[in-house]
Design a protein around this nucleic acid. Structure first.
Lengths: 154, 154
DNA sequence: GATTAATAGTTGCAGATGCAACCAAGTCAA
DNA sequence: TTGACTTGGTTGCATCTGCAACTATTAATC
């Protein structure tokens, strides 16, 4: 079907990764140096900050982060005093995760910085371009990988 | 300036990461199960396959992969019999990396599969959409992160 | 030529990650 | 109730990664 040889520079997954790394790098430095946080920790915090108390399972479902990562991030955030766990009344296996005051403060701080960072990024791109990009990315995320990666309809 | 709280789902780095993960996942499985390769190994192989013999330094420069990762990937590819090193005549510190027959065969195989994978991805998006996305991503990659991440002009 | 700085590449170490195995609690059905 | 199965969450282990330190060589400066 095709006989020209492969060029990494035109491989969509590669381009996406490069772009992701390029844009993540700067903000990663922010939450790392300011709070010694890992990316997963930051994401878990952001979910709890935005959506309020929920269980680890819920975080997994919303964020597509693996449960192992969530588990460890939650443990770290707990020892950092950013969240507390309390047993779920409905299900004794589950724990309800809730940000502490400190957790909310950290989220407020990083959230503001993230917004500023995002604005700067989008400004570089130009406003409509940024919006188009958003749409495209959401589209891709919703679709997943082409070869029957179907376990996402759960 | 802003007083609504932060939403991860609108954070560009996050969206890019999600999209990158979603699209990488499938092909990662391919090179991993077929050749036990790591992503970095695959990328190094792809660079050498596409551009021919070069030094590790060159790979770093072209790909923006960290030298540590390149070093280890090269070592692994060497023990897999995919490439050979030979001392550079100009610079006794540097080594010229060159694919072996096996390396070229692996690259040919994975390259074809990658092209197919990429085509499938782009088909899902629709042709013009895919092209627009390409442009945007390259734009982002060229710019880097907004906060003076200037060490790229070296 | 001797000294100092820069560069190609490797290595040690401390995290971060993915995967499979695991525990405890819930569900379902006979 | 008992037993088979699922599910929320944790842990062990075997990588993969990032960073700083290091060796050997080259370049620059005096």
């Amino acid at each position: 079907m095709q006989d020209k040889d492969f060029d990494l520079q035109e491989f969509l997954p590669y381009l996406l990764n490069q772009a992701a790394e390029a844009t993540s790098k700067g903000f990663h430095a922010t939450y790392k140096t300011a709070y010694g946080m890992t990316r997963t920790q930051w994401r878990v915090l952001a979910h709890l900050g935005k959506f309020g108390a929920m269980t680890a399972r819920d975080i997994c479902a919303r964020s597509h982060i693996e449960k192992t990562k969530v588990s460890r991030a939650v443990a770290a955030l707990e020892t950092d005093g950013c969240l507390t766990r309390s047993p779920s009344p409905q299900d004794r296996r589950a724990e309800i995760l809730m940000l502490t005051d400190r957790g909310r403060a950290v989220f407020a701080d990083l959230g503001q910085r993230a917004i500023a960072y995002d604005n700067a990024l989008r400004a570089q791109l130009g406003p409509e371009t940024a919006i188009r990009l958003d749409t495209l990315l959401r589209h891709i995320i919703a679709q997943g990988s082409p070869d029957g990666d179907a376990e996402d309809q759960r």
